[in-house]
Amino acid sequence: MEYTSLGRTGLSVSRICLGTMNFGPHTDEAAAHALMDTAHQEGLNFFDTANTYGGGDHRGRTEQIIGSWFAQGGGRRERTVLATKLYGNAGAPGRAPWPNEDKLSALNIRRACEASLKRLGTDYIDVYQMHHVDRATPWEEIWQAMEVLVAQGKVLYVGSSNFAGWHIAAAQAAAGRRHFTGLVAEQSLYNLLARTVELEVLPSARYHGLGVIPWSPLQGGLLGGVLRKAGQSGVRSADRARKLTAAQREQLQSYEDLCDKLGHEPGTVALAWLLHQPAVTAPIVGPRTADQLDTALRALDVTLDQETLDRLDEIFPGHRPAPEDYAW
């Protein structure tokens, strides 16, 4: 297993991050426990979750499943770099959130952290991530609340998710004024089909020393061989394939043909491409089964030569950092 530092920290994380969003809604507790055990056996130590995962009336269920796995002992917690998130409504199911039950007020940051620690059955969170930017709460308030959690030992590092490049810059400027570390990582939508972050988010993250943790590396399954699977009577894939535009279908057909030529599964190539991007720390994979996890891990053994990388850029054109990308 390959490991790397998370941004400008001394924290060593696996080059693949285990996403747990499916735990609860699609993967029951026993299967989730087995999947996390397999992840540890394969050397994955970086797990990502959120306080709202579980969905609907089961918000927080995913954290509870992780907590019950930690409770089995055997070094499970000690060997895991745990990232969770706050922002969304984490109030009681079946009602609208009360004030300060969502977003990033100092009160909600405190409450949400305490609730996550309880569900997770741990006394600290390695990376506490803001799931979205809160345009209504001043950075001074956010950082003061995070500083308290760090001082109490309940949070080691703070991260962001779905931030624009200028949000990262503003956050780091405010943290710097307080002599606080600020952000150490950013989670962004990033894959061969979604490359907008190359304009400003990735340059900002690199400038400020943040690790980048791409979510949806297969663009909801489109980069996982959707055309091939649709032809194999996959109901879900067939539905996705029907919704493709002509241009998307042409792109994906060229992509799947290239993957066939390379001798690798499309999903493996998509992950391998992300691992070849210098700004990327660890793509998040959200397997429901051990077989899906195994497919993702194969990406670590795939080396894409420059000719292949150039061909992928032809199929899925990317961006240069701004302002060069905007130049005539």
Rank of each mutant, 00 (worst) to 15 (best):
I213C: 11
L227A: 14
G209L: 09
E256S: 05
V155A: 02
G182D: 09
D239I: 11
G267C: 09
R228D: 14
V226C: 13
A272D: 10
E200H: 10
A175N: 10
V155R: 01
R206P: 04
G153D: 02
G263K: 05
S204Y: 01
R249C: 06
V226L: 14
R177Q: 12
D257M: 04
R135H: 05
N191M: 11
M146R: 02
K154H: 02
R242K: 15
E186N: 13
A173Q: 09
Q152S: 05
S233Q: 15
L262C: 06
L183M: 12
E186Q: 14
G220T: 15
P266I: 08
K154G: 02
C259K: 02
G165T: 00
K154M: 04
H208M: 08
G220P: 14
L202I: 04
A241I: 10
T137C: 08
G267S: 10
A174Q: 07
Y255D: 03
Q219G: 11
E141I: 03
C259Y: 01
M146N: 04
P203A: 09
G165L: 03
Q152W: 00
A171S: 11
G263C: 07
R240Q: 15
A246H: 08
E147R: 07
V148R: 05
Y207S: 09
T137W: 01
E186I: 13
E147H: 03
V235N: 12
S188Q: 12
L183D: 08
N191K: 11
N162M: 05
W143Y: 04
Y207D: 12
